[in-house]
Amino acid sequence: MSTKEEKNRIELLQGTLDLLILRTLLLGPAHGHAIAKAIEFRSDDVLQVEQGSLYPALHRLLKRRWISVEEGTSENNRRAKFYQLTTLGRTQLALETSKWDKLTAAIGRILRPTEEGPS
């Protein structure tokens, strides 16, 4: 891991990790490492999951009953905990996604006002 690589990486915003986890689980059940890896992979390694915050985040979601957990077997035949989206989680994801869209759009308008204008 060179320094250059690290410069391109972005620390996750507070609270966005929850959203990303939910979105990742929309594809199907996954265990902790897989979730972290998926987030990094799907963002082309730009987003780095602060792994220390992954497990607290997972449990936060469990507590709110947005995800559930099941024992399962991982790809290399090991027992692992698999997290999966609940119905409640799905609704929440939709809600959060639309909120996120509004937020990014709003921030975008502020940061690049010229792009919106005709000139």
Binding site: G32, H33, A36, Y55, S74, N76, R78
Partner: peptide
Amino acid sequence: RMLRGLDQEIRDHIEMATQD
């Protein structure tokens, strides 16, 4: 129930990362 096996889970996580 939720917290049971948390340390095992973390150990596995690190092991998988190591493998990667």
